[in-house]
């Protein structure tokens, strides 16, 4: 059952540090291939940390692992992912005359994915 969420791609210090180690290190890849979900949303969707979820919009579709957001960092209805290849797959080319594509606050659908997250 797909639900709508607002996806916020952003920076984390882990993304920043692992970026320096290299974009092909496990640390960086894990960081950019994991979506954070609020605890109550995880519960409602029957997800546990490490489960695969499918996220899509009219631009693209990704399959990534999920984990519960720390404490009250994320309100219900919102997703967070570190910037990277996966978040970019959901970004359209339209910039509304600004040069900047919508890269935060994107409307997406999410559902549990039974296969592997192929990350």
């Amino acid at each position: 059952m797909a639900e709508t969420f607002i996806l916020i791609p952003g920076r984390t210090s882990k993304q920043g540090t692992s970026l320096n180690e290299g974009k092909y290190t496990d640390g960086y890849l894990e960081e950019i291939n994991t979506v954070q979900i609020a605890g109550d949303d995880m519960q409602r969707l029957g997800l546990i940390d490490g489960d695969s979820v499918r996220i899509w919009n009219d631009v693209g579709e990704i399959v990534v692992a999920c984990k519960t957001a720390r404490g009250d960092e994320l309100p219900s209805g919102m997703l967070f992912i570190s910037y990277g290849d996966k978040s970019s797959q959901l970004m359209g080319g339209e910039t509304h005359g600004s040069g900047m594509p919508d890269s935060k606050g994107m409307d997406v659908f999410l559902e549990k994915h039974s296969g592997s997250s192929n990350s």
Partner: peptide, 22 residues
């Protein structure tokens, strides 16, 4: 994204990782 440029000089940046899909 509009498929206009026919060559690129890219200095110390990684658009293939963080640009939009098109």
């Amino acid at each position: 994204a509009r498929q206009e440029a026919d060559a690129a000089l890219i200095i110390a940046s990684d658009p293939m990782s963080n640009f939009s899909q098109p």
